[in-house]
Amino acid sequence: MGGSPDISKKQLDHPLDDLIRTDRLPHIWCAGCGIGTVFSSCLTAIKASELELNNISMVSGIGCSGRAAGYVKLDSFHTTHGRAIPFATGLKLGNPDLNVIVFSGDGDLFAIGGNHMIHAARRNMDITVICVNNLNYGMTGGQVAATTPHMAKSTTTPSGNPEDPFNLPLLAYASGATYVARWTMLHTRELTSSIQEAILKKGFSFIEVLSPCPVNYGRRNKEKALDTLKLYQEKTIIRNGAIPAGLDIDFSKEVVLGKFVDVERDTYIERYEKICRQES
């Protein structure tokens, strides 16, 4: 057969194959969903970080984004709804050499898990939290979330959402996170380098990633998959260092992306070593 290239082999290889449990494919994510893109950015960032892969653990909660832990070929933990962060906290304290990444959704991290999110940020636990924000509960079929825009429709707000959503970067900043950023899944280059930066950064890092859910959110709000991507392209503006209080999401105006916080503060473990291990 001489030197003819093995085409079938070439097609099968993907640069991230070694980080994916290919025996678990196909994945559950719907056509038009953005989670896969965020996941792929995350894996690319993990590779680029050149960290020892055996020392990286991924922890997820429950929901569509929570399935990420099931596809990554690293030590990976698919925990209970909302509890990825405290599980990750124990994992990190049990072995401080581990690099722990929490990959989960907005409902998981900010509604049922909101308490854990703010406390992990407050104590500056040295973990990275990536929150895929698709503005609703996707896995259960599109219910209103703590991130759903005011007046948006969902299966549990058929007349429109009477509530206001959280401004996630503001909440993370106010709670004490030392790294806070927001991107959309369309901004893959910025997102990937931001995740890499967050993983390598000491302290509590938080990245919100806006991501479409055409099947459950888009459909009910007259927004096709491509429309959402157009909004991500046309209605966003990158403003690094923007004041977190002004980061409410309103696509009728403009949505600010960027890195908003990048500061140094002792981590929980550093302080525990310094203060609590003192022999009296």
């Binding site: 933990f77 209970t80 990750a88 124990g90 049990g94 308490n115």
Partner: peptide
């Protein structure tokens, strides 16, 4: 931890760290 749910979740995490 911030509540008992977090307390037991952290215990499970630490156990998987081998402790």
């Amino acid at each position: 931890m911030e509540d008992e749910i977090a307390a037991i979740a952290s215990v499970l995490g630490a156990s998987w760290a081998g402790v």
